[in-house]
Design a binder for these strands. Structure first.
Lengths: 224, 224
DNA sequence: GACAAATTCAAACAGACGTTTTAATCTGTT
DNA sequence: AACAGATTAAAACGTCTGTTTGAATTTGTC
């Protein structure tokens, strides 16, 4: 359990439920979270969830929608990635994902919920993949494709995309373990920035080497 | 759900329970797995778990112990990593982890269970970290320290270790998503080998660049 | 074969869970 | 003030969970 985020409590029950549910779902995942915990945290009655959202899954879907829609988690598009050099775009992407994931506000919900879906898909899994993961995956592949001089759908591009995602998700989701294995890493903002820089440096080198290796190995039938 | 591993069914109940529990725990994690599912799979009565292992947690701890102890998951030490060049040692480490994690036998249990513990720590979490994760983390840091010319406990070494772990765990744990986002990636043995090679190439380049960057930055305040 | 211990079994238990019910309370309108 | 609809509240329901019980069955030993 972690301290509550310092966000003013909304006055109507529906909003309070979403706020509480976002926090608890992102901490514990869909299945492990209980409606009673959520309602206690929201100062609401147990029946409130069924009244306002039909059932637990309805609340979950709404939280996912809010965490990526309203607060513009999908502003990856608005980042104008295409207008920037690919390397810089990747740095922004990584830093953006990591800061959001390790923050305490609504923007942190989406990547944490996603990481729980990775480990244990819920009933809303197909929807989460379609609406949240897939577009972000595509943005990342776009940037990596430019770095590699390859199609976004290329196998090499995809491998690199998963290497980047894997690192970000790991630092975001494995905090309990990291806290034990590496006690001095407290995930303060400067430390998060350091991690983001590390992932970007590490990945950019990996990406460039991967591009070169492939070209070397295929030297002859090179495709772009 | 996935098809059962093609392993001969042990004859005594206790062994059958461990076999079934290992499979189900590694698929669903400690909390989501039910004792009734496990017993059905083991052709055993529900009370058998409590008779042979005291309770569900006792069975879980035993599965963890077996998956890393008996079948020598901790043979990272026996791999004679120190006798090999650091880069080759890293390749072996990555390929070994990935093959085990994506396989179907007992050796696959441990990394999958670990990834579930990352996303949602169980009551056995401290024990799993101490006995399983920590020593493997140390082995990896040892190899990376040699590559970087740094202490195993150094922050840079640790960052690189987490970058490697993140990639391996991601490919091992995020298969449901990868199946949707990347349908042609079927995780056949040759594809797993390709992934292992990619992670190793990618990471080795990242590690070397990280080492260089740090040296550069500390010598002349030069930034990339 | 007889006995005691070990093991298995069906059945039930207590608790937590999501959900529903029914009544009470609040809110806005006339 | 009076009414209708929206919202909240307490309590209970049915289901699933891990666990326990106590009898039945198997196993090992003499």
């Amino acid at each position: 359990m972690v301290a509550a985020p310092a966000i003013p409590v909304p006055d109507d029950t529906r909003a309070r439920l979403i706020e509480a549910a976002g926090f608890i779902f992102s901490e514990q995942g869909y299945r492990a979270a209980t409606v009673r915990d959520i309602c206690t945290r929201a100062n609401a009655n147990v029946a409130a969830i069924n009244y306002h959202f039909r059932d637990k899954l309805g609340l979950y879907v709404e939280v996912v929608r809010v965490s990526m829609g309203t607060h513009g988690e999908h502003d990856l598009g608005q980042m104008q990635l295409d207008a920037k050099p690919a390397a810089e775009a990747l740095r922004l992407l990584i830093a953006g994902m990591l800061e959001r994931a390790l923050g305490r506000d609504r923007a942190a919900w989406y990547l944490r919920i996603m990481s729980h879906e990775l480990a244990q898909p819920s009933e809303a899994f197909p929807r989460v993949v379609d609406e949240v993961i897939s577009p972000n995956y595509a943005s990342l592949r776009g940037v990596l494709g430019r770095l590699l001089g390859r199609e976004p759908g290329d196998d090499i591009t995809r491998l690199c995309a998963h290497s980047v995602i894997g690192q970000v998700v790991h630092f975001a989701a494995a905090r309990p373990v990291i806290n034990i294995l590496w006690p001095t890493m407290k995930m303060t903002p400067p430390q998060v920035a350091q991690i983001a820089k590390h992932i970007a440096d590490f990945s950019l080198a990996g990406i460039r080497a991967t591009g070169l290796n492939i070209v070397k190995e295929n030297s002859g039938k090179r495709k772009i």
